[in-house]
Design a protein around this nucleic acid. Structure first.
Length: 839
DNA sequence: AGCACGCCGACT
DNA sequence: GTCGGCGTGCTC
């Protein structure tokens, strides 16, 4: 602990007070200095969680970032109220990482803290009221009004009430006034209650009391006594069956889970009787939320190609810290990862494996579980907060030396990472868009690895252009795996021209004749089909057949998407929802219908076209629940589904031998997305979906429906010519100044009045123009979605020189400009959002 | 972000 | 008249 204060300080001898700079979970660009009370001085250090008063009454958890002796000059520091732990919840490397992230992604450190800590580790207080014990309504000189009476009556029975409860009680929006009045009348007291959010999982266990577990005679006589009490006897017999104390009396101490009895249909009341009679005792232990699982798979045998790749990786790691592992789908990257993870763990380091959200529910996890057993922690976005806290603590305690997780797992408290792997590194789900910090985990993890002096592998079958570029410029190492594992063959592609079929009237329910024939063939062979539908821009909506009216969100500048379930229309941006109207509000026509190729509609069309087939759909709607995704996968794997329709999700982790046909319904939609990355994404997506077709010995078929079959990209996808595609796209990007040749920063300006939004955006844009760096400024333009949650949005883009400190300088200047803008009276109420590397 | 203070409309 | 709407400013 001494190291905290630096060698120069000797706090024990010092007369001066100690202060702590504390990170608070609020979006304020500052840390806050609090006084460390003498009695805490020895039990506090960097990364400790403390409770402090923040503002007039709020009590919050903060993280100590620095301890020093400089008393703040302009204000009196408040004292730290309490220290929550006897150890550092956050380590110094993490604090450095947070500071870096806040700077790089232009956000506040409190926002990083919020994203990093599971909320179970962030205690906060809630204001509560209670009856003033010295209050006597008969003696009180102040009469209460009707509403105050209601509150007091409620307090008589409930003891304490939160502000919200009071508001609900009276059905009003703001309770402040009444509470104030009650305080003045000395009827109530206000206090802050800190809520402990994390609760450990507790198991009730049963064991025999002495002398029964060591004294056979006592036990035998006990059985005689229970001869006419069959239920109790049954419980004892069950206990002895599970725990043979005759042979091993020492087993009794560990007892038996109470559930064992209740699961076997025995009643709790008989157990209670046995406890009451001193035969059994009940005790509670804290258990993990994660099942103990032992490693079952010992040795991984690598193919020659895999082994070669492994050796190359090791050689390149001697010189480079980051490496791109470019391995085509099915080339067996996982086995290489396992080997490297094992070696890193053996050398005593920790390992982090990042996976995209949707890949984390698949067989990859169970596969790794078999190899690594319980030392592997899983950090999932669908985990409850209690589970997250347990993973966090597991990393702290050393229980988990290896974690596989989604983007937020980069925040776990590793202290000695040796290896970081980002699988499917091209996946866009590594980028957090909202709220701040708007970070790209694939990039941020490189900083994390650098802080730990760890090695990083970026793995993909279709690398992001950034990573590929970095490998070609020798910034990263590069290893290419181009053989399919187990000698499986690549799929065979066929293009199907939508327009040709349409002319000949062969297009049925959006399926071309070729597509329909191939699906039928596959079904006849008892094999399975995947139909891929890009979600972007494909949400179905309602439109009036007569006048063309389309329902729009009241708060955002988007049309509402149609959900068959409940006949509802919803806004994807603000969550607004509404029932589908019976008649068109614009013209009174009754002809309102759904438009758009949503997965729902495709599922329907397929059922009509192939009535004998079992069709299912996999998208956000059907997999929202924790195990929804897994259940669908199991059904599909078991062969209970013939055709699976899905978005993005079906490109991940589906590895079923019986899938021999993959259909891509409208490749053009991916291709013509208005974004410089459209081509790259299209290549990635088509290749990824196609990779699901035909593994092992069966060759798969991929049918791509398009209106423009003669585009170059199709040829490149079909021949798997990633490199040429890359070179061609890169020429464009260089010419038009797009990443990876420049850095992009997006600045959006939001205001509820569109004139003000536009004015503020222009003003800011002009100011940015004066920043002295080499740059190109675009905009300000109305956002792609012009209004969200009643706020009008204007966007500017800055393209900055990659080399040197152009971007650091720009960001720094920008911060200043934003402060200036915030203070400007013409632009009151304007919000600015900075997104670095928005991609 | 929350939360308190302060200044204007629609109700007893 | 006041209740209560939300605009503005601060948090060590």
């Amino acid at each position: 602990m001494e190291s905290l204060f630096g060698d120069a300080y000797a706090p024990q001898d010092s007369k001066s007070n100690l202060y702590a700079d504390i990170i608070m979970p609020v979006p304020i660009p500052k840390m806050f200095t609090y006084k460390i009370p003498r009695n805490f001085a020895d039990e506090i250090g960097i990364g400790y969680r403390v409770i402090v008063q923040f503002g007039l009454k709020k009590v919050l958890t903060g993280i100590i970032a620095k301890v020093h002796q400089k008393a703040p000059k302009e204000y009196e520091a408040k004292p730290i109220l309490d220290v929550l732990d006897t150890f550092a919840t956050v380590n110094p490397l993490q604090i450095k990482f947070w500071v870096w992230m806040a700077e790089y992604y232009c956000c506040h450190i409190g926002e990083v803290m919020n994203a990093a800590l599971p909320s179970g580790l962030k205690l906060s207080s809630q204001s509560k009221i209670q009856l003033n014990p010295s209050y006597d309504s008969d003696q009180s000189p102040y009469p209460l009004d009707a509403r105050e009476e209601i509150i007091l009556q409620a307090l008589a029975s409930k003891k304490e009430l939160s502000y919200e409860e009071c508001e609900d009680l009276l059905g009003i929006k703001s309770i402040q006034g009444i509470i104030k009045s009650l305080i003045i009348k000395e009827a109530i007291l206000v206090f802050e209650k800190v809520m402990e959010k994390y609760s450990p999982k507790v198991e009730s266990r049963i064991r025999l009391c002495p002398p029964y577990f060591s004294d056979i005679k006592a036990l035998e006589s006990l059985f005689k006594e229970l001869a006419n009490k069959p239920k109790q006897e049954e419980i004892l017999l069950k206990y002895l069956q599970e725990i043979p104390i005759y042979q091993k009396p020492e087993l009794n101490i560990k007892g038996l889970d109470k559930k064992v009895f209740t699961d076997a249909g025995m009643t709790g009341s008989s157990i209670k009787t046995l406890i009451k009679n001193g035969v059994l005792e009940e005790y509670k232990i804290i258990i993990s939320r994660f099942e103990e699982m032992n490693a079952t798979e010992e040795k991984i045998i690598l193919s020659t190609e895999q082994d070669e790749a492994l050796q190359q990786i090791k050689t390149q790691f001697e010189e480079k810290n980051t490496l791109l592992l470019h391995g085509i789908t099915g080339s067996g990257k996982t086995e290489i990862y396992i080997q490297l993870i094992n070696e890193a763990l053996d050398s005593g380091s920790q390992v982090l494996l990042l996976l995209p959200e949707i890949a984390l529910t698949t067989h990859m996890v169970s596969r790794l579980r078999k190899v690594f057993g319980s030392k592997m922690g899983v950090y999932h976005s669908k985990y409850s907060d209690n589970e997250r806290v347990e993973v966090w603590n597991g990393v702290l305690s050393g229980k988990f030396s290896f974690v596989i997780g989604v983007r937020s797992s980069i925040f776990l408290p590793f202290d000695s990472l040796g290896l970081v792997i980002v699988d499917e590194e091209h996946e866009s789900s590594y980028k957090q868009y909202d709220p701040a910090p708007r970070f790209q985990a694939r990039d941020a993890v490189l900083m994390l690895a650098w802080l730990h002096q760890a090695k990083t592998i970026l793995g993909s079958a279709t690398p992001s252009f950034e990573s590929y570029y970095n490998s070609r410029t020798k910034k990263y190492g590069y290893v290419f795996l181009d053989k399919r594992y187990g000698g499986a063959s690549l799929p065979q592609y066929q293009l199907s021209d939508i327009l040709v079929d349409k002319k000949k009237n062969l297009l049925k329910l959006d399926f071309t004749r070729l597509m329909r024939e191939k699906i039928q063939e596959t079904l006849n062979k008892q094999e399975q089909v995947l139909i891929f539908q890009n979600r972007r821009g494909y949400a179905p909506y309602i439109a009036c057949d007569d006048c063309g009216w389309i329902p729009e969100c009241e708060h955002c500048d988007v049309s509402l998407t149609y959900h068959q379930f409940g006949e509802e229309m919803r806004c994807h941006y603000c969550g607004f929802k509404e029932k589908v109207p019976r008649v068109c509000p614009a013209c009174g026509s009754g002809k309102l219908g759904a438009v758009g190729l949503g997965t729902e509609r495709i599922e329907e069309s397929l059922s009509l076209l192939f009535p004998e087939a079992r069709v299912a759909r996999m998208d956000l709607d059907t997999t929202r629940s924790k195990y929804g995704y897994q259940r669908l996968l199991e059904e599909f794997g078991a062969g209970n589904i013939d055709i699976l329709v899905g978005t993005q999700m079906i490109t991940k982790g589906l590895d079923f031998e019986k899938v021999t046909l993959v259909g891509i319904l409208d490749a053009d939609r991916i291709l013509f997305f208005p974004d410089f990355r459209a081509g790259e994404r299209a290549f990635q997506q088509i290749t990824q979906v196609a990779g699901r077709a035909g593994r092992r010995e069966k060759q798969g078929t991929v049918i791509i429906q398009t209106r423009k079959p003669d585009q170059a990209i199709f040829g490149q996808v079909i021949s798997g010519d990633y490199k040429n595609f890359y070179l061609q796209e890169m020429a464009e990007r260089q010419r038009f100044f797009y990443p990876p040749f420049v850095k992009i920063i997006k600045i959006s300006t939001r205001h509820k009045d569109y004139k003000t939004a536009e004015k503020a955006a222009r003003h800011l844009h002009n100011l940015m123009g004066d920043i002295q760096v080499k740059k190109i400024l675009l905009g300000p333009e109305k956002g792609l979605v012009g209004k969200i949650k009643n706020q009008y949005i204007y966007e500017s883009f800055a393209k900055l020189d990659k080399s040197g400190n152009a971007q650091a300088h720009f960001k720094h200047e920008l911060q200043g400009l934003l402060m200036e803008m915030q203070a400007h009276k013409d632009f009151r109420g304007t919000r600015f959002v900075v997104d670095v590397d928005p991609y």
